[in-house]
């Protein structure tokens, strides 16, 4: 059967927990349900990367000013907390009456690093 997935996670408001510089693994629980009524359900601990990486902004060099037709008078250099290594984990969905089990694969972070703020997501 095709499973429509709903992801529920309690990941909001984690910022106040990790107030140290750098980029660190951060555990959170993911709950996957097979449908809106939650007929089949599974919960698994996975990792995100959360942190504080250095960034700065300063007046642009003259060459940047010229190249941007004097619109970019600020230059910002930054690094962002990214997942540098990930792996897949299987989440087992338990169904009522124990009739059958489904398994869903999800990603989890294995390592984190202050790295490029990826353009596509920037």
């Amino acid at each position: 059967p095709v499973i429509s997935l709903l992801l529920l996670s309690s990941s909001i408001g984690w910022s106040s927990d990790v107030l140290t510089p750098g980029c660190h693994l951060y555990p959170f629980n993911v709950t996957i349900r097979s449908d809106r009524r939650g007929t089949c359900k599974g919960t698994h601990l996975v990792y995100a990367c959360v942190g504080y990486c250095e960034s700065s902004a300063f007046p642009s060099r003259y060459s940047v000013l010229v190249a941007s037709n004097f619109t970019h008078n600020i230059t910002s250099t930054s690094r962002c907390c990214t997942i540098s290594k990930d792996t897949k984990v299987k989440v087992r969905l338990d169904c009522p009456q124990g009739r059958h089990h489904d398994e869903i694969e999800i990603l989890t972070a294995k390592a984190c690093r202050c790295d490029m703020c990826r353009k596509s997501r920037y």
């Binding site: 990941s11 995100a48 990486c53 700065s56 907390c81």
Partner: peptide
């Protein structure tokens, strides 16, 4: 000018 460390994160989604 400006300098600091801002919160950034990446998390897996389905």
């Amino acid at each position: 000018a400006c300098w600091g460390r801002c919160e950034t994160w990446e998390k897996p989604i389905l």
